[in-house]
Design a protein around this nucleic acid. Sequence first.
DNA 1: ACTACTATTGCAACATTGTCGCAATAATAT
DNA 2: ATATTATTGCGACAATGTTGCAATAGTAGT
Lengths: 125, 125
Amino acid sequence: MKRRNTPTKEKVLTILKSQDYAISHETIADNIIDINRATIYRILNRFCEDGLAHKIVAENGKQYFALCKTCEVKDHHHNHLHFQCNNCEKVECFKSEINISLPEGYSVGNFNGLLSGLCGNCAAD
Amino acid sequence: MKRRNTPTKEKVLTILKSQDYAISHETIADNIIDINRATIYRILNRFCEDGLAHKIVAENGKQYFALCKTCEVKDHHHNHLHFQCNNCEKVECFKSEINISLPEGYSVGNFNGLLSGLCGNCAAD
DNA sequence: ACTACTATTGCAACATTGTCGCAATAATAT
DNA sequence: ATATTATTGCGACAATGTTGCAATAGTAGT
Protein backbone atom coordinates (compact mmCIF):
# COMPACT_ATOMS: atom_id res chain seq x y z
CA MET A 1 0.00 0.00 0.00
CA LYS A 2 1.56 3.25 -1.13
CA ARG A 3 1.40 6.27 1.12
CA ARG A 4 0.09 9.56 -0.12
CA ASN A 5 1.03 13.03 0.91
CA THR A 6 -1.90 14.90 2.27
CA PRO A 7 -2.17 18.25 4.03
CA THR A 8 -3.60 16.56 7.11
CA LYS A 9 -0.74 14.14 7.35
CA GLU A 10 1.77 16.94 6.94
CA LYS A 11 0.14 18.95 9.69
CA VAL A 12 0.29 16.05 12.10
CA LEU A 13 3.90 15.44 11.22
CA THR A 14 4.74 19.09 11.77
CA ILE A 15 3.21 19.01 15.21
CA LEU A 16 5.06 15.84 16.10
CA LYS A 17 8.31 17.40 14.99
CA SER A 18 7.67 20.56 16.98
CA GLN A 19 7.27 18.67 20.23
CA ASP A 20 10.05 17.58 22.54
CA TYR A 21 7.71 15.13 24.19
CA ALA A 22 5.54 12.25 23.17
CA ILE A 23 2.04 13.49 22.61
CA SER A 24 -1.44 12.11 22.67
CA HIS A 25 -4.12 12.57 20.09
CA GLU A 26 -5.48 15.27 22.36
CA THR A 27 -2.46 17.49 21.87
CA ILE A 28 -2.84 17.16 18.16
CA ALA A 29 -6.52 17.92 18.28
CA ASP A 30 -5.74 21.02 20.29
CA ASN A 31 -3.28 22.18 17.67
CA ILE A 32 -5.23 21.44 14.54
CA ILE A 33 -8.80 22.44 14.31
CA ASP A 34 -11.12 20.57 12.06
CA ILE A 35 -9.47 17.23 12.00
CA ASN A 36 -11.33 14.11 12.84
CA ARG A 37 -10.30 12.01 15.80
CA ALA A 38 -10.36 8.81 13.79
CA THR A 39 -8.14 10.39 11.20
CA ILE A 40 -5.58 11.43 13.78
CA TYR A 41 -5.35 7.88 15.04
CA ARG A 42 -5.09 6.49 11.57
CA ILE A 43 -2.30 8.86 10.65
CA LEU A 44 -0.40 8.18 13.85
CA ASN A 45 -0.75 4.45 13.45
CA ARG A 46 0.49 4.71 9.91
CA PHE A 47 3.54 6.60 11.16
CA CYS A 48 4.21 3.72 13.53
CA GLU A 49 3.82 1.14 10.80
CA ASP A 50 6.28 3.06 8.70
CA GLY A 51 8.84 3.28 11.48
CA LEU A 52 8.55 7.04 11.64
CA ALA A 53 7.10 7.14 15.12
CA HIS A 54 6.49 4.85 18.04
CA LYS A 55 3.68 4.46 20.48
CA ILE A 56 3.86 4.56 24.25
CA VAL A 57 1.04 3.42 26.44
CA ALA A 58 0.85 5.40 29.64
CA GLU A 59 -0.35 4.18 32.99
CA ASN A 60 -3.70 5.78 32.42
CA GLY A 61 -4.01 3.59 29.35
CA LYS A 62 -3.68 6.46 26.93
CA GLN A 63 -1.54 6.27 23.83
CA TYR A 64 1.27 8.70 23.26
CA PHE A 65 3.28 9.06 20.10
CA ALA A 66 6.78 10.26 19.51
CA LEU A 67 8.99 10.59 16.48
CA CYS A 68 11.77 8.05 16.32
CA LYS A 69 14.76 10.17 17.17
CA THR A 70 16.34 8.00 19.82
CA CYS A 71 15.47 4.72 18.20
CA GLU A 72 18.03 2.57 16.47
CA VAL A 73 17.97 3.14 12.77
CA LYS A 74 19.32 -0.20 11.69
CA ASP A 75 17.38 -3.11 13.11
CA HIS A 76 14.69 -0.70 14.15
CA HIS A 77 13.28 -1.13 17.63
CA HIS A 78 12.29 0.98 20.58
CA ASN A 79 14.06 -0.43 23.57
CA HIS A 80 14.32 2.77 25.49
CA LEU A 81 12.44 3.85 28.54
CA HIS A 82 9.92 6.61 28.77
CA PHE A 83 9.06 8.83 31.64
CA GLN A 84 5.78 10.43 32.49
CA CYS A 85 5.59 13.12 35.12
CA ASN A 86 2.71 12.71 37.50
CA ASN A 87 2.43 16.45 37.77
CA CYS A 88 2.84 17.99 34.34
CA GLU A 89 1.92 14.71 32.64
CA LYS A 90 4.51 15.14 29.94
CA VAL A 91 5.93 11.97 28.42
CA GLU A 92 9.54 11.97 27.35
CA CYS A 93 11.87 9.49 25.73
CA PHE A 94 15.01 8.49 27.56
CA LYS A 95 18.14 7.96 25.53
CA SER A 96 19.51 4.85 27.13
CA GLU A 97 18.51 1.52 25.74
CA ILE A 98 17.39 -1.34 27.91
CA ASN A 99 18.89 -4.77 27.66
CA ILE A 100 16.16 -7.24 27.13
CA SER A 101 16.49 -10.96 27.37
CA LEU A 102 13.62 -13.31 26.87
CA PRO A 103 13.21 -16.85 28.15
CA GLU A 104 13.95 -19.72 25.81
CA GLY A 105 11.34 -20.16 23.13
CA TYR A 106 9.87 -16.72 23.38
CA SER A 107 9.86 -14.41 20.40
CA VAL A 108 10.30 -10.71 20.74
CA GLY A 109 7.82 -8.21 19.62
CA ASN A 110 7.58 -4.86 21.20
CA PHE A 111 8.70 -3.20 24.38
CA ASN A 112 6.72 -0.64 26.29
CA GLY A 113 8.57 0.75 29.27
CA LEU A 114 7.31 3.65 31.28
CA LEU A 115 8.59 5.21 34.44
CA SER A 116 6.54 7.68 36.34
CA GLY A 117 7.26 10.13 39.10
CA LEU A 118 8.23 13.76 39.09
CA CYS A 119 10.33 15.28 36.36
CA GLY A 120 13.19 17.67 37.00
CA ASN A 121 11.04 20.73 36.70
CA CYS A 122 8.18 19.56 38.84
CA ALA A 123 10.31 17.91 41.53
CA ALA A 124 12.11 21.22 42.07
CA ASP A 125 8.97 22.99 43.21
CA MET B 1 -8.65 3.64 56.91
CA LYS B 2 -8.95 0.14 58.25
CA ARG B 3 -9.64 -2.72 55.89
CA ARG B 4 -12.49 -5.10 56.47
CA ASN B 5 -12.76 -8.70 55.52
CA THR B 6 -15.63 -9.30 53.18
CA PRO B 7 -16.67 -12.36 51.20
CA THR B 8 -16.28 -10.45 47.97
CA LYS B 9 -12.76 -9.41 48.76
CA GLU B 10 -11.87 -12.98 49.73
CA LYS B 11 -13.25 -14.33 46.50
CA VAL B 12 -11.21 -11.91 44.45
CA LEU B 13 -8.12 -12.78 46.43
CA THR B 14 -8.72 -16.47 45.93
CA ILE B 15 -8.94 -16.00 42.20
CA LEU B 16 -5.78 -13.94 42.14
CA LYS B 17 -3.98 -16.64 44.07
CA SER B 18 -5.20 -19.36 41.78
CA GLN B 19 -3.77 -17.69 38.70
CA ASP B 20 -0.23 -17.99 37.43
CA TYR B 21 -0.73 -14.91 35.33
CA ALA B 22 -1.74 -11.33 35.81
CA ILE B 23 -5.41 -11.00 35.18
CA SER B 24 -7.81 -8.32 34.15
CA HIS B 25 -11.11 -7.49 35.76
CA GLU B 26 -12.69 -9.51 32.99
CA THR B 27 -11.16 -12.73 34.21
CA ILE B 28 -12.49 -12.05 37.65
CA ALA B 29 -15.91 -11.24 36.37
CA ASP B 30 -15.89 -14.52 34.48
CA ASN B 31 -15.08 -16.41 37.64
CA ILE B 32 -17.42 -14.72 40.05
CA ILE B 33 -20.96 -14.14 39.10
CA ASP B 34 -22.87 -11.32 40.68
CA ILE B 35 -20.09 -8.99 41.48
CA ASN B 36 -20.14 -5.45 40.31
CA ARG B 37 -17.50 -4.14 37.97
CA ALA B 38 -16.87 -1.07 40.07
CA THR B 39 -16.40 -3.26 43.10
CA ILE B 40 -13.84 -5.42 41.37
CA TYR B 41 -11.80 -2.38 40.49
CA ARG B 42 -12.07 -1.00 43.97
CA ILE B 43 -10.93 -4.23 45.53
CA LEU B 44 -8.02 -4.60 43.12
CA ASN B 45 -6.91 -1.04 43.65
CA ARG B 46 -7.06 -1.56 47.38
CA PHE B 47 -4.82 -4.60 47.00
CA CYS B 48 -2.36 -2.43 45.14
CA GLU B 49 -2.46 0.27 47.79
CA ASP B 50 -1.78 -2.35 50.42
CA GLY B 51 1.18 -3.78 48.53
CA LEU B 52 -0.55 -7.07 48.05
CA ALA B 53 -0.77 -6.81 44.29
CA HIS B 54 0.53 -4.68 41.49
CA LYS B 55 -0.96 -3.31 38.35
CA ILE B 56 0.31 -3.72 34.82
CA VAL B 57 -0.97 -1.68 31.93
CA ALA B 58 -0.96 -3.61 28.70
CA GLU B 59 -0.48 -2.25 25.23
CA ASN B 60 -4.20 -2.30 24.64
CA GLY B 61 -4.50 0.05 27.60
CA LYS B 62 -6.13 -2.55 29.80
CA GLN B 63 -5.17 -3.04 33.42
CA TYR B 64 -3.91 -6.37 34.66
CA PHE B 65 -3.31 -7.31 38.25
CA ALA B 66 -0.97 -9.80 39.80
CA LEU B 67 -0.14 -10.80 43.33
CA CYS B 68 3.24 -9.60 44.52
CA LYS B 69 5.21 -12.83 44.45
CA THR B 70 8.27 -11.66 42.59
CA CYS B 71 8.36 -8.22 44.09
CA GLU B 72 10.91 -7.18 46.66
CA VAL B 73 9.48 -7.40 50.12
CA LYS B 74 11.66 -4.84 51.79
CA ASP B 75 11.60 -1.48 50.05
CA HIS B 76 8.64 -2.67 48.06
CA HIS B 77 8.67 -1.93 44.35
CA HIS B 78 7.89 -3.67 41.11
CA ASN B 79 10.89 -3.28 38.91
CA HIS B 80 10.41 -6.42 36.96
CA LEU B 81 9.29 -6.85 33.40
CA HIS B 82 6.07 -8.36 32.22
CA PHE B 83 5.30 -10.22 29.09
CA GLN B 84 2.09 -10.39 27.16
CA CYS B 85 1.64 -12.94 24.42
CA ASN B 86 0.05 -11.54 21.31
CA ASN B 87 -1.63 -14.86 20.71
CA CYS B 88 -2.97 -16.20 23.99
CA GLU B 89 -2.95 -12.73 25.54
CA LYS B 90 -1.72 -13.99 28.87
CA VAL B 91 0.32 -11.60 30.97
CA GLU B 92 3.10 -12.98 33.10
CA CYS B 93 5.64 -11.57 35.52
CA PHE B 94 9.31 -12.06 34.81
CA LYS B 95 11.60 -12.70 37.71
CA SER B 96 14.53 -10.54 36.82
CA GLU B 97 14.59 -7.00 38.08
CA ILE B 98 15.46 -4.10 35.87
CA ASN B 99 18.09 -1.58 36.80
CA ILE B 100 16.57 1.83 36.63
CA SER B 101 18.47 5.05 36.74
CA LEU B 102 16.80 8.40 36.50
CA PRO B 103 18.28 11.69 35.40
CA GLU B 104 19.37 14.17 38.01
CA GLY B 105 16.49 15.81 39.82
CA TYR B 106 13.88 13.26 38.89
CA SER B 107 12.04 11.36 41.56
CA VAL B 108 10.99 7.79 41.13
CA GLY B 109 7.48 6.61 41.29
CA ASN B 110 6.40 3.54 39.49
CA PHE B 111 7.67 1.37 36.69
CA ASN B 112 5.50 -0.29 34.09
CA GLY B 113 7.44 -2.50 31.74
CA LEU B 114 5.80 -4.76 29.25
CA LEU B 115 7.23 -6.92 26.54
CA SER B 116 5.03 -8.46 23.93
CA GLY B 117 5.51 -11.15 21.38
CA LEU B 118 4.87 -14.86 21.43
CA CYS B 119 5.21 -16.93 24.55
CA GLY B 120 6.88 -20.32 24.65
CA ASN B 121 3.69 -22.20 24.07
CA CYS B 122 2.37 -20.10 21.25
CA ALA B 123 5.70 -19.66 19.46
CA ALA B 124 6.06 -23.44 19.27
CA ASP B 125 2.99 -23.83 17.10
C1' DA C 1 -5.19 17.91 -19.04
C1' DC C 2 -8.04 14.05 -18.47
C1' DT C 3 -8.93 9.59 -16.47
C1' DA C 4 -8.76 5.53 -13.56
C1' DC C 5 -7.38 3.70 -9.39
C1' DT C 6 -7.36 3.61 -4.61
C1' DA C 7 -5.44 5.76 -0.39
C1' DT C 8 -7.28 8.94 2.70
C1' DT C 9 -10.77 11.44 5.12
C1' DG C 10 -15.06 12.66 7.73
C1' DC C 11 -18.96 11.11 9.87
C1' DA C 12 -21.53 8.39 12.78
C1' DA C 13 -21.84 4.75 15.63
C1' DC C 14 -20.03 1.52 18.70
C1' DA C 15 -17.81 -1.35 22.43
C1' DT C 16 -15.00 -1.06 26.22
C1' DT C 17 -12.77 0.62 30.11
C1' DG C 18 -12.30 2.71 34.36
C1' DT C 19 -14.31 6.11 37.68
C1' DC C 20 -17.62 8.50 40.69
C1' DG C 21 -21.67 9.86 43.62
C1' DC C 22 -25.11 8.15 46.31
C1' DA C 23 -27.87 5.26 49.08
C1' DA C 24 -28.03 0.71 51.18
C1' DT C 25 -25.57 -2.90 53.46
C1' DA C 26 -22.56 -5.16 56.55
C1' DA C 27 -18.03 -5.63 59.18
C1' DT C 28 -15.91 -4.08 63.34
C1' DA C 29 -15.28 -2.27 67.99
C1' DT C 30 -17.45 -0.62 72.17
C1' DA D 1 -27.17 -4.42 71.07
C1' DT D 2 -25.45 -0.29 69.08
C1' DA D 3 -22.72 3.09 66.72
C1' DT D 4 -19.35 3.86 63.33
C1' DT D 5 -17.80 3.70 58.83
C1' DA D 6 -15.75 0.65 55.26
C1' DT D 7 -17.70 -1.68 51.54
C1' DT D 8 -20.97 -2.72 47.98
C1' DG D 9 -24.34 -2.21 44.08
C1' DC D 10 -26.40 0.65 41.00
C1' DG D 11 -26.57 3.94 37.64
C1' DA D 12 -24.45 7.17 35.05
C1' DC D 13 -20.63 9.17 32.97
C1' DA D 14 -16.44 10.65 30.22
C1' DA D 15 -12.96 9.14 27.47
C1' DT D 16 -10.52 6.30 24.38
C1' DG D 17 -9.76 3.94 20.37
C1' DT D 18 -11.87 1.37 16.39
C1' DT D 19 -14.76 0.37 12.38
C1' DG D 20 -17.98 0.64 8.22
C1' DC D 21 -19.36 3.42 4.72
C1' DA D 22 -19.63 6.95 1.42
C1' DA D 23 -17.27 11.02 -0.29
C1' DT D 24 -12.92 13.16 -1.41
C1' DA D 25 -8.53 13.79 -3.30
C1' DG D 26 -3.50 12.00 -4.32
C1' DT D 27 -1.05 9.65 -7.81
C1' DA D 28 0.29 7.53 -12.02
C1' DG D 29 -0.55 6.73 -16.83
C1' DT D 30 -2.20 8.22 -21.13
